[in-house]
Simulated scan of single mutants.
Amino acid sequence: MSLDTLSLWDISPPVQPGAPVFPGDTPYQQHWSAQIGPGCPVNVSRITLSPHVGAHADAPLHYDPAGRAVGALDLAPYLGRCRVIHAIGVRPLIFWQHLAHATQGLPPRVLVRTYARAPVDRWDPQLAAFAPETVERLADAGVVLIGIDTASIDPADSKALASHQVIRRRQLRVLENLVLDDVPEGDYELIALPLKLTTADASPVRAVLRALPS
């Protein structure tokens, strides 16, 4: 199968000034340390950002004070067969019945689309999130990674972070802030490797889906 634009879906939002972040988190900023001109042959920038800007992988350190940093995680969960399931418009919590139509023979990775069009340019305080019992059932089904097209697998105002605590206990991995607007339901290959940030609580990813060989 040829690797062309028809077989790849880029499911990462743009990372740029104005990219939405949780209120109080560090926004993306870029400045030039050097620019091409007389005596300077290159452009070199410096960036400041939260590792939760854009599509990203949370590490256990994000929700567990004794958890591992993202650079210490096994990469295997972030690469391989996955299923995209639509639960468009479901708010505030995704329960099993919203996914049940597509749960037969689940692969190890599940990504859930909740937006008709993801709000890549604004913060959404009413984001959809997983009910913790849904995460438990996915883990029971052998799922090792869950992903969502919102900024969190828990409600934006949650303090208990019940779904994060389920993935801590069940040792699942998570991707947040995906863009699944143009992705039909079905099975794909996921490629979403985090950076080897040895002390960080999360990492940006360039998440893509690739069509499976027919």
Rank of each mutant, 00 (worst) to 15 (best):
D124A: 12
P65R: 13
I85G: 08
S203C: 03
W32L: 11
P51H: 05
V110I: 12
S50F: 13
K196D: 15
T26S: 08
V84W: 02
A151W: 14
V144I: 07
Q97D: 06
I191Y: 04
L73N: 01
W32C: 11
L73C: 11
G147W: 05
P41H: 05
A207W: 02
D121K: 15
L49Y: 12
A100G: 00
A129G: 10
A141D: 11
R113P: 05
A59L: 04
S163A: 14
G24M: 12
G37L: 10
W32M: 11
Q165T: 11
F22T: 09
L3H: 09
H86Q: 09
V110K: 03
D124R: 15
M1C: 08
L79A: 04
V84D: 01
E185N: 08
T5A: 15
I191H: 04
L79T: 03
Q126S: 15
H86A: 05
A131I: 04
A100S: 00
D182F: 15
T199G: 04
I148A: 12
A192I: 10
G89R: 12
P27E: 07
H86Y: 05
A19V: 14
R210V: 15
K196P: 05
T198G: 12
Q29C: 03
Q29W: 01
E136C: 07
L127V: 11
P125C: 14
D25I: 07
A55I: 05
A100K: 10
R46Y: 00
N43W: 12
A19F: 08
P194Y: 07
A156F: 13
L190R: 11
Y63T: 14
D157E: 15
L180D: 15
V112T: 10
H31F: 00
D154F: 06
Y188L: 12
V143S: 01
A128F: 07
V110W: 00
L190F: 10
R46G: 00
L197E: 03
K159F: 05
L193P: 02
A162V: 07
D10M: 03
S7P: 03
P155L: 05
P132A: 00
P60K: 04
D181M: 04
A128I: 05
A72Q: 08
W9Q: 10
M1K: 06
T103P: 00
R168G: 01
V84C: 05
L138T: 05
A211S: 11
P132L: 08
H62N: 03
L8A: 09
